Simulated scan of single mutants.
Amino acid sequence: MVRDINGLGGFSGPQAKTEQSGKNTAKPTESSTPGSESVAPAADDVQLSSEAKSLQSLADKVNSLPEVNIERAEKIKAMLERGEYQVDDLVLADKILSSDALFGK
């Protein structure tokens, strides 16, 4: 059975206990005595985990990297197609090992 509480003719979803009971109760921030000050709710506090901080740091590093050098990429592509591009195994190994430091390992 669908109840039309708001006059809109549709399902209004689950209701809080205070709405179901039909009683009017004061809200926690409202004062029940005249002239007293209402207390503002406490501000939310967010604390990031160390993993989130690490991810943010990595994202900042990636965002600070320069854009792709199209000229250099085209030059390397042409060298690869001609079979002229040589990879130095020791330099490659050093680059791989240094990438672990970037990720905090």
Rank of each mutant, 00 (worst) to 15 (best):
I70K: 12
S31M: 12
I76C: 05
A40P: 07
I76Y: 07
T18F: 15
Q15T: 06
S50V: 03
A43P: 04
N24G: 15
A40L: 06
K17F: 13
T33I: 15
Q47M: 07
N69A: 01
P14I: 12
E67F: 08
D44V: 12
A73P: 09
A43M: 05
P28S: 02
K27E: 13
S54I: 10
L58M: 03
D45H: 15
E51Y: 07
L48S: 00
G35L: 01
E37P: 14
S38L: 10
N69S: 01
K53W: 01
S64G: 03
E51V: 07
Q56G: 05
M79S: 09
P28L: 02
E37L: 14
S21E: 06
N63R: 05
I76R: 08
L58W: 03
E37M: 14
S50I: 02
R72P: 10
E19C: 11
P34L: 10
Q15Y: 11
E30F: 04
L58P: 03
E37R: 14
K53F: 01
E51R: 06
E51G: 07
K77R: 12
L48H: 01
E51A: 08
Q20R: 14
T33Y: 14
K53H: 02
E71T: 06
A42R: 10
S31K: 09
Q15C: 09
E19V: 10
D60L: 05
S49M: 00
S21M: 05
K23I: 13
S38D: 07
V68K: 11
S36K: 14
Q20S: 14
E19N: 11
A59H: 11
M79K: 10
S50G: 08
V68L: 11
V62M: 11
L58A: 04
S32G: 15
S64C: 02
P66V: 02
K23G: 11
K75P: 11
Q47I: 04
T29C: 15
L58N: 03
V62T: 10
P14M: 13
S50M: 06
K61S: 11
I76V: 09
A16C: 13
V39N: 05
A16I: 11
L48T: 00
E51C: 05
A26V: 06
Q20G: 14
P28E: 02
E30N: 04
S54C: 11
S49I: 00
S57K: 09
E19Q: 09
G35S: 01
Q47F: 06
Q56H: 05
A78T: 04
L80P: 06
S64L: 03
L65P: 03
S49F: 00
E37V: 15
E37S: 15
I76P: 04
P41Y: 00
E19K: 12
A52D: 01
K53I: 02
T33F: 13
S50T: 02
T33K: 14
A78R: 06
Q20C: 11
R72H: 08
P28K: 02
S31F: 10
A40K: 09
S32R: 15
G22C: 00
G13A: 00
K61D: 06
A78K: 05
